[in-house]
């Protein structure tokens, strides 16, 4: 059987499959399906320094082959993360990625430092691209800001940094390159696309937040292209995220250049999807005569 092990910034993941931030809770309900300990890594819903309550409903709406969400990141803040969430996540014995965000560079620094100080987290993922916060996406849109926040967090913590980027830019590969130059150890591509649904009866935007982030199979080819184009510009690993609903979607991402993949909204539809993706990648490698998943990372570039 082929090896599924991959490495990001010197940290070994036993397989390349993890949840995307914000789409998977480490709950008893979820443990009914499989243990999060079977995943390559686990990640929390983004935390800020302070507790947040999230956006007013309606928060979600289905769209063709996708959904818009305008949740607004309701999370408990740094104290809750350290006291409640982290012990739960630690119990699964796999590398932990702490997804963090802030309203200023100082916030990003403080929350990152506090997370790193616990000594229990393998990576920090900077959520620079939430489309549902008024300033959320701007971090990943402005080269100077992007460079600055990554550079400063990198200088102040001693664990690897992942930059989660937005596709809502003219060229996401450019922003991936900026992230690499600023010292990011990996990039996570992509966050959701900002979109809107109008309620034609009420004649106004349907979501409480007016706009939401589009996810699901509808955005998968866009995400594959973001990974493919970034792979050509950067040397640091890419975590490919966006519309993965099956093992073949995940294999596409890896062939495009992703070292690992994150699965988000499809966990809502198929609670077994991440486990099925791990098994499917393994079968694909065996069927195609590969010894390791590392052999196929970026393989689609040979002819491109």
């Amino acid at each position: 059987m082929a090896s599924l092990e991959v490495e990001i910034a010197g940290i070994r993941l036993k397989n390349p499959v993890m949840p995307a931030s914000g789409a998977y809770e480490y709950s008893e309900e979820r443990k009914s399906f499989f243990s999060p300990g079977e995943l390559g890594a686990i990640i929390n819903k983004t935390i800020f320094l302070e507790k947040r309550i999230g956006n007013p409903p309606p928060r979600i709406v289905e769209t063709p082959c996708g959904m818009l969400n305008a949740i607004g990141i309701p999370t408990g803040g740094i104290e809750d993360f350290i006291e409640t969430q982290l012990p739960k996540m630690e119990s699964f014995g796999v590398p932990i990625i702490a997804s963090v965000a802030g309203n200023s560079i100082e916030d990003f620094l403080e929350v990152s430092e506090r997370v790193a100080e616990t000594g229990k987290v393998s990576f920090i993922e900077l959520n620079l691209s939430c489309p549902n916060l008024s300033e959320g996406i701007e971090w990943a849109r402005d080269r100077k800001q992007l460079f600055s926040v990554i550079e400063r967090v990198k200088a102040s913590v001693d664990i690897p940094i992942i930059a989660k980027l937005s596709p809502m830019v003219s060229d996401v590969a450019e922003m991936a390159a900026v992230s690499e130059d600023a010292g990011a150890d990996a990039v996570a591509l992509i966050n959701t696309y900002k979109g809107m649904v109008i309620d034609i009866e009420e004649k106004k935007p349907l979501l409480g937040n007016l706009t939401g982030g589009l996810s699901g199979p509808a955005i998968h080819p866009l995400a594959v292209y973001a990974v493919f184009s970034s792979y050509r510009k950067i040397k640091i690993p890419i975590i490919g995220i966006g519309g993965i609903a099956s093992w073949s979607n995940a294999v596409e991402m890896i062939l495009a250049g992703a070292t690992a993949v994150g699965i988000g909204m499809y966990n809502f539809v198929n609670p077994m999807v991440m486990k099925e993706v791990i098994e499917g990648i393994s079968n694909y490698l065996d069927d195609n005569g590969f010894n390791s998943v590392k052999e196929i990372v970026g393989l689609a570039h040979r002819l491109g």
Binding site: A23, S27, G54, P57, R59, I60, N69, I71, P74, M265
Partner: peptide, 8 residues
């Protein structure tokens, strides 16, 4: 089951 936070 509480993951998506959609049904607030």
């Amino acid at each position: 089951m509480g993951d998506c936070h959609g049904c607030a």
